[in-house]
Nucleic acid binder design. Structure first.
Lengths: 343, 343
DNA sequence: GAGAATAGTCGAACCGATTCGACAAGTGGG
DNA sequence: CCCACTTGTCGAATCGGTTCGACTATTCTC
């Protein structure tokens, strides 16, 4: 394998000169710089990442910790991963994907061994066991998802509370007075998935203020159970005219459920979901929804992480919590409720 | 940061002794080994990955090259990634995820800089531009997907030709004599997605031998276009009693299409797809299908890659092309065709 | 025209591991 | 009792970069 010594010899200079010629950290005559670059090209030189990491304590790799939880909706995960990975690459970083079951050990491993310059954590729980490890170390970290204690880390997420209010208000303005909200399974909450109750509580409270009859339930994240659950809910609340979905599996199941009962949206039921544009497109979901923008969140997270990594003064800046504002993508699945029962 | 020198000092031995105590590559007295291990624990020592890579020329990282092509069905990708990443971790490797647009440069970069010990390529095209780069280098590589020229690499894939025959035979045995096959878009073929024509050609040929009227078409991989296309196809071939799907988007669209036209499977139409079990579960697809086993393929690929990396003699072994045999998962969406037209 | 600053280059140290060869002490065989 | 061998340890070299300090030659300033 060709190393910088070979390049230096071919260019007739010392190793240090070759290094400076490539990094530009000291003045080098144009002529020498050219010779070095020619040598690099001729020999096909690429710096050894390990050696460089050893010398500079920088790896230009970020760690991406993504857990694949059996009852969380998997396809959404890919978009976060893509957002992170693509953005990292644009900024000159590679992505080390960690899907280890034991995230705490994995985190310790990749940071203490200095495999990465910083980490992005997905699927952050309210009391996430990974956070103490992070705080004990010195690596910058950015979270997607909001823990109870945000000290020492930067946090990005959709504003789920605002999303809850937005969804309720949207239906309220159209005239709906009885609404169902389907959330992810209760054990997602127990595991610390704060986005579930954030949206729910805000929605419940807002509905109360507006005088709306509100049924907040959680449903399984798996087919076909969720399909049956959705059907049962529609039966149980025949007067409900609006359906809010914070459960992607429920969204995926809904078209079939509606078809089977001969219901149409928005004629018989106004439907408003919370998921990503990509998800909607892939499955041709005909429902209006609040965009959850996983790619955008991934992008913001990496941008901030790289700032912290590269800007020594940024390390001193206070940590940020940034919520992106929910926006409704109108697909025409909401309308004023019919007067009188249509189901 | 604590290094092996600190450990050695704490244990009262030399650095080399500490190293040997931890690696076990030379005999070390039980007592010293214990002291070293205590020191490691007390100080929280984790070897520096860069330094180790430099010294051993091994990184214990594998590269995973996954392209996210705009018209290929994305959710399937996650399962390959999970299969690879989880298996790698089980075998003691981390995964560097490369989603760079420019895969060729990315491949050169991660191999020549020795960031990885080997690579797994997903979504391999028939004349894949990444292969020459691989052959020019010395890193072991494993592909998922079959290129025209397999020299120098190990290859794993579903046996798509056998899958095509299996699907045709399955319907033929039930008595079907007119069948539609929907493949991915033609430009997937043009880009080198050999699995498309492999399955199609085998199916066409097999249908010819069996005297079956066979309509092989390609459809878009996007909603809602694919839904319309499927509907149009059913209209265009009213006598077709069997539908084969090698296009995941078409599968996702089918339930709605069937509902809209009041068709039921298998009463009016026998349906047989080709996708993964996970995909079927997530979207509650009620169709029988040939399991494409992305997790299993990812697992096999990594196993073989690690064998090549770790076993110096394995490097000499001839390269393998291994096809996994397609198997039908029966969901009851195929049956004997009705006599006479039912649609 | 002297002294200071600048440009351009080099040698050597360093980052943190692994590993080779050397060596001392202990063990066994003839 | 001597020699060969094994066991346990250490010092030093090495992997391939980066970077500091030193040095020379040139340019600038007053």
């Amino acid at each position: 394998m060709v190393n910088i010594g070979d390049v230096a010899r071919a260019a007739g200079v010392s190793r240090s000169t070759a290094s400076y010629a490539l990094s530009g950290k000291r003045a080098i005559s144009e002529e020498v710089r050219q010779r070095v670059e020619d040598a690099v090209r001729d020999l096909g030189y690429t710096p050894n990442a390990g050696a460089r990491a050893l010398a500079t304590s920088q790896t230009r790799v970020i760690g991406l910790l993504a857990q694949f939880l059996p009852d969380e909706f998997a396809p959404a995960m890919l978009q976060y991963i893509m957002g992170v990975s693509n953005t990292a690459r644009e900024l000159g970083y590679d992505t080390l994907l960690v899907s280890d079951e034991d995230h705490e050990r994995a985190l310790t491993r990749i940071t203490r061994s200095r495999m990465v310059d910083g980490v992005v954590l997905l699927n952050v729980a309210e009391n996430d066991d990974r956070l103490p490890i992070l705080r004990a170390g010195t690596h910058p970290a950015v979270l997607v998802g909001v823990p109870a204690d945000c000290t020492g880390v930067d946090v990005f997420d959709l504003d789920f509370e605002e999303a809850g209010r937005l969804m309720v208000d949207h239906l309220h303005r159209l005239g709906h007075r009885e609404i169902i909200l389907i959330s992810p399974p209760e054990h997602v909450v127990e595991r610390g998935g704060a986005y579930v109750w954030r949206l729910r509580n805000a929605a419940v409270e807002h509905a109360r203020l507006r005088g709306i009859t509100f049924h907040a339930v959680s449903g399984p994240a798996r087919q076909p159970e969720i399909g049956r659950e959705v059907a049962a809910l529609l039966d149980a609340h025949p007067d409900a005219t609006g359906l809010l979905l914070n459960n992607e599996a429920a969204v995926a199941a809904l078209p079939t459920v509606l078809h089977e009962r001969g219901l149409r949206s928005p004629a018989n039921l106004s439907v408003l979901g919370r998921y990503s544009d990509e998800f909607a497109r892939t499955f041709s979901l005909p429902f209006s929804f609040v965009e959850s923008a996983p790619d955008r969140l991934g992008r913001m997270a990496v941008r901030q992480l790289v700032r912290r990594i590269e800007n020594p003064s940024a390390a001193q800046e206070p940590h940020v919590i940034r919520f992106i504002s929910p926006e409704i993508v109108d697909r025409g699945s909401t309308a004023a409720p019919h007067r009188g029962p249509v189901r």
